[in-house]
Design a protein around this nucleic acid. Structure first.
Lengths: 121, 121
DNA sequence: ACACTAGTTGACTATTTAGTCAAACGATTA
DNA sequence: TAATCGTTTGACTAAATAGTCAACTAGTGT
């Protein structure tokens, strides 16, 4: 198997980390509607503009968003639509997992009292 | 556009967070070879077994890995191969981004002669 | 110049988390 | 039973980070 340099590993981890924050996912979700201003995003997310501005700037730095200034207002938009493919993959995984957890015997469940797999070879 | 409940948002963010750590990506990468014991993973990652055990247990809790005990040894394996699809999507994004930004620094180009990793111990 | 509006950034706090060592645990073997 | 090996977990430290407020920057209009 190929050895992956740790610098690359860190880059990939960094990209995932951008997506590992509910507020940022919320922003991405409402930017699906199209370009939006910092103020509107802040208002709809229920956080200060300062906070949202940091999130937007982080995502822009990582290439997920693009920035456009018009007068005193700054608009952000999706630069990398493939993010949504990532999100859908994850949602698929979670959905499968939830369905599976709903059907599996309780003793196998993660949060059940500790017990080794009973029928394992 | 549809409003996504914040609980779901947190779940998705949590899944991405599992993948946002270089050590965990390293583990996933070497588990592509197949099932491995905690001790071997720890040795090859260069961390203590305690540390690796925490990472493994986190990934198992999130459904990425599965655990099997044989005697005193515990083996972990990939439970959700679709993780690799996620990683490849991200790698694709990064590659595109690097090429695009690489008008200037020729040393970063993929076809350029190999470059030292300055931050490596 | 001045005031007004929208966004960004410095400084700080509270929370989370990767990593370590040491102790506990669980399975095997003497 | 005791000894031992591999793994897990409790307690702790150091570093990262989401969020806030306040100060600052940058356009627009009077």
């Amino acid at each position: 198997m190929e050895k992956i340099p740790s610098e690359i590993m860190a880059q990939v981890a960094g990209y995932f980390q951008v997506l590992s924050e509910p507020t940022r996912l919320h922003i991405l979700n409402l930017l699906q509607e199209g370009e939006r201003s910092v103020g509107e995003i802040a208002q709809r997310c229920g956080y200060t503009a300062a906070n949202i501005s940091r999130h937007l700037s982080l995502m822009t730095k990582h290439g997920l968003l693009e920035r456009r200034r018009q007068g005193t207002t700054v608009y952000y938009r999706i630069a990398d639509p493939s993010v949504y493919a990532l999100c859908e993959l994850v949602c698929g995984n979670l959905a499968r997992r939830l369905l599976q957890a709903a059907q599996v015997p309780q003793a196998w469940r993660q949060d059940a009292p500790s017990m080794e797999h009973p029928g394992e070879p």
